[in-house]
């Protein structure tokens, strides 16, 4: 049995039932890292939120999402709350706003621990500080006592990473975790993510619009377009032998080393015209 099994997942929003995800299937094994790549509006974030059971009230979900065999779709809120933060956790895109601005960072990390393990504040504090050190934050004691506004984006994102990993979850869902960071910080955070995932052995569903970023973390990649998976393969396969024209476009835009200075940069549209292609838009 896989850790995560997604079968014919369909998500639509509102009364008009606009479909954001249209029949997605995939499996994720223990310790595996799966990249979900696609442009804005391709349904990748909605897929991630469906895995977490965190879709907004106006979403209609059909199909199946099973975590270690237990169904997430339609499960009661209390049961889902027990899974979240313990068996499965999430790292969001916006580190600047993802932390409570009125609460010290250390307390927010400790909260995850206490919520699921009921630890007393003494040992929790030690565990929090060591977790903050593990995600590569120098001076973790100061960080723990700081409010979010006193930290940089990279520091905040690593604090969020600490929150996501402190309970050693089986699965970490990362939704564009480095998109809001500048490039040097991005590399640092990705490197730390790699390290802590390897150390903990957690599986990872990594969402990004950037093939270059995904290739640094993941072994396998799903390419999403208009709510459907159009191509699946290892990172190497995608780079060397992309099948779908949209994937070919993605690969070309990710490989700046093949572009000469002064030459026009390639765009996805050079390879993929939405109207004529298979799996295209309505």
């Amino acid at each position: 049995m896989s850790l995560l099994e997604v079968r014919d997942l369909r998500v639509s929003f509102g009364r008009r039932r606009v479909q954001a995800v249209r029949g997605v299937d995939f499996d994720l094994d223990d310790g595996q890292r799966l990249g979900l790549i696609g442009e804005s509006g391709s349904g990748k974030t909605v897929t991630a939120l469906a895995v977490m059971g965190l879709l907004p009230e106006n979403a209609t979900v059909t199909g199946s999402v099973r975590l270690r065999g237990s169904e997430i779709v339609g499960a009661p809120e209390v049961a889902l709350a027990q899974l979240r933060g313990a068996a499965v956790s999430m790292v969001f895109q916006e580190p600047m706003t993802a932390l409570d601005p009125t609460m010290r960072v250390g307390r927010q990390v400790a909260e995850v621990l206490r919520l699921h393990q009921g630890e007393e504040s003494g040992p929790a504090r030690e565990r929090v500080v060591s977790m903050l050190a593990e995600v590569g934050l120098a001076d973790p004691v100061r960080i723990a006592d700081a409010y979010p506004h006193q930290l940089s984006g990279g520091q905040r994102q690593r604090a969020i990473l600490a929150m996501a990993l402190i309970n050693s979850p089986d699965l970490v869902v990362c939704d564009e975790p480095t998109t809001a960071l500048d490039v040097t910080v991005q590399a640092l955070v990705l490197q730390k993510l790699n390290e802590v995932l390897t150390d903990s052995g957690a599986a990872c569903l990594f969402i990004s619009h950037d093939l270059a970023v995904v290739s640094q973390v993941c072994d396998k990649v799903l390419v999403m377009l208009d709510g459907q998976v159009v191509e699946t393969g290892t990172v190497a396969e995608l780079f060397t032998n992309p099948q779908h024209p949209y994937t070919r476009g993605l690969v070309a835009t990710a490989r700046f080393d093949q572009t000469r200075p002064g030459q026009r940069l390639p765009t996805v549209e050079d390879f993929y015209a939405p109207d004529t292609s298979v799996g295209g838009r309505p």
Partner: peptide, 23 residues
Amino acid sequence: DYYRTARSIGWTPMRALFRHGIR
């Protein structure tokens, strides 16, 4: 976003609102 984070770490909606909403 911080409310969504609170939900993602395992608070139920009402408790997330109490814990991170009131202040």
